[in-house]
Write a protein that binds this DNA or RNA. Structure first.
Lengths: 250, 250
DNA sequence: CGTACGTTTGATCTTTCTCAATAATGGTGG
DNA sequence: CCACCATTATTGAGAAAGATCAAACGTACG
C-alpha cells in the first residue's frame, strides 16, 4: 500500500524515519479511525483551556501554536507542517494550555484520543516513537527560548529561516535552496518576539547582505552556510535521523 | 514503606500526584537499580552533545538546563527542583541537545537508561505518567517562550518568581508566602533573557512597589494576587493536579 | 582579614518599539 | 477585464526599554 494515498501517509513516513515499526504496528496506525476535515486559514484546531477529545494530524497545509498574554500580545510557539501530529500534548493532558490555529488553508485528520492513547500504551514501538516525536518538539521549544532570549533580531530571523528550510526539506516540502514561507511578516514577528516593522527591516538587511533573496514570500538562500552562520544555526536540536553523520562531515 | 526514605521518594510522590500507580508498578520504580551521587554547585549532569547512558532524578538541591549561543551568551531553559526527573529527554533521544548543571550542591540518583526505557514501554501506567511529566515540561517551555518573547522585564521577573513559588510549594519545598531563591541575579538574567544589571533594577522596583520583600535570596510576596498580576501569571500551564478546581474557584 | 563573588548604582549608548503614512498585492464583484 | 477593498509590506522620525561600561559596596568564607 502506498502510504501517500493514506491521510496519515506523510506522518507515518516521518515516524518511520525515526524508528522502524513492525508491520502490525504500522497496520494499527493506518487502521486508526479518523475523520478528515478541510480548514481555512485562521480556523482553530485547539483552543486554550479546551478539553480535547481528538488528536489531529496535519495532512496538508500549515498550522501554528500560539499563546496570548494578558496584554493581548501574541507569541507563536511553533509552526506545524504537513505530516506533523498536532496534539501529542493533549493525548495525556486534559486541558490544553495553548491554542493551535491553521496558518494556511489545509486538511487535518482527527483521531479519537483514546484510540491513540491505547496504541501508545500497549505497543512499545509506537510508544517509543511517539515519545521521541514529543521530545523533539520539546527540543525545538528549547531552541526557541534561546532564540528569543539571547539572540538579536538579525540572528532570530536568520535562525527561524534556517529551521524552516531544514524542516521543510526533510519532509520533502522544499527543494534545494529555497522555500515558500507560509507566514506574513507579522506572524514572523510573533514567532521571534519582534515587531513586524522590525522584521521587515531585518529581512531587507539580510537581502542587502546577500544572505537571502525574496520574491513575494519565496525565500532563497544562495549561500546556505552564511545564512546558518548569521542565525547561529546548528541542526542538532532538530534531531533529524541519520544526520549525525552530516554534522560530523562538515 | 515510607517513600521519604527512598532516594526516589519525592519523585514518586510527584508521579503519583499525577497518576496513581498500581502497587506492582510502584514497586518496579522503587526497585530500579540506582546509584546516588553527591554533587557540587556547577557540576555537569549532562553535557550538550553527549550520549547519555543514565537517567538522573534530582534527590536534593537544584539544577538547571542551559544552552550557550555561538556568541557565548547563556540561556537557562528551566530550573529543576528536588524530585524532578532530569533526563526524561534523554531516555529516547540519543544525543543531548542541551546541558544540565547543578545550581546548588545536591544529590542525584542515576538510573540506567535501559531499565527506565523498559518500564516506560512495558508498563502502561508508568508510560502514561512519565509521558505526562514530559508534556508538562514542554508546557512550561512554551510559557517560557512567551515570557521571554512577549513580556517586558518587570513581567518576566514577576512571572518567574510566581512559577518558583507554585512549583516549590507544590513539592512541599516552600511554605506560605515566601521561598529561598536558589539562584543569583545573573542566573535570573540568563533565565529571563535580560542582563543582571537590569534584573537588579527590576527587583528593586518590585520591592519598592511592595510586590516582594527580600532578605538576601529569600523572597516573600505579601500580596500574592498582585505579584501574579504583575507577572501575567496563571498556573494553568503548570498542570498541577487537582487545581482546575482552584482556578475555577477564583 | 583579605579575596572572590554577588549586588548595587550611575552614566551613556543601542536596539528595537511606536506611531504614522504610503505603497504594493491579491482577491472580489460588477 | 477592471475598479475597489482589505491585507500586507515598506519607509521615516522620534521615543523608550534595556544593554553596556565602569565603579563601589557587601558579605561569606577560607
Amino acid at each position: 500500500m502506498d502510504p501517500h494515498q493514506h491521510p496519515l501517509g506523510r506522518f507515518l513516513r516521518d515516524v518511520e524515519r525515526h524508528y522502524r515499526l513492525p508491520d502490525d504496528d504500522r497496520r494499527a496506525l493506518l487502521d486508526l479511525p479518523l475523520r478528515q476535515r478541510q480548514l481555512d486559514a485562521g480556523s482553530y484546531l485547539v483552543r486554550e483551556g479546551s478539553v480535547p477529545s481528538v488528536c489531529s494530524v496535519l495532512v496538508e497545509g500549515f498550522a501554528y501554536r500560539q499563546k496570548v498574554t494578558g496584554e493581548g500580545a501574541r507569541q507563536i510557539l511553533s509552526v506545524c507542517i504537513a505530516g506533523d501530529a498536532i496534539d501529542l500534548q493533549n493525548i495525556f493532558l486534559d486541558i490544553s494550555d495553548h491554542a493551535v490555529q491553521m496558518l494556511t488553508r489545509g486538511t487535518v485528520a482527527d483521531v479519537p484520543r483514546e484510540a491513540l492513547q491505547e496504541l501508545v500504551l500497549t505497543r512499545p514501538a509506537i510508544g517509543r516513537v511517539l515519545i521521541q516525536l514529543t521530545l523533539i518538539e520539546a527540543s525545538i521549544l528549547r531552541e526557541w527560548v534561546v532564540n528569543v532570549g539571547r539572540r538579536d533580531a538579525r540572528e532570530r530571523i536568520a535562525h527561524i529561516l534556517c529551521e524552516f528550510a531544514v524542516r521543510l526539506e526533510t519532509r520533502g516540502l522544499a527543494s534545494g535552496d529555497g522555500f515558500e514561507l507560509p507566514m506574513t511578516q507579522e506572524q514572523l514577528a510573533d514567532a521571534t518576539g519582534l515587531t513586524s516593522v522590525h522584521v521587515n527591516r531585518v529581512l531587507k538587511a539580510l537581502e542587502a547582505d546577500g544572505l537571502i533573496e525574496r520574491r513575494r514570500r519565496h525565500i532563497q538562500y544562495p549561500n546556505w552556510r552564511a545564512l546558518q552562520d548569521a542565525g547561529d544555526f546548528s541542526r542538532r536540536y532538530l534531531h533529524v535521523p541519520g544526520e549525525d553523520l552530516i554534522e560530523a562531515a562538515i
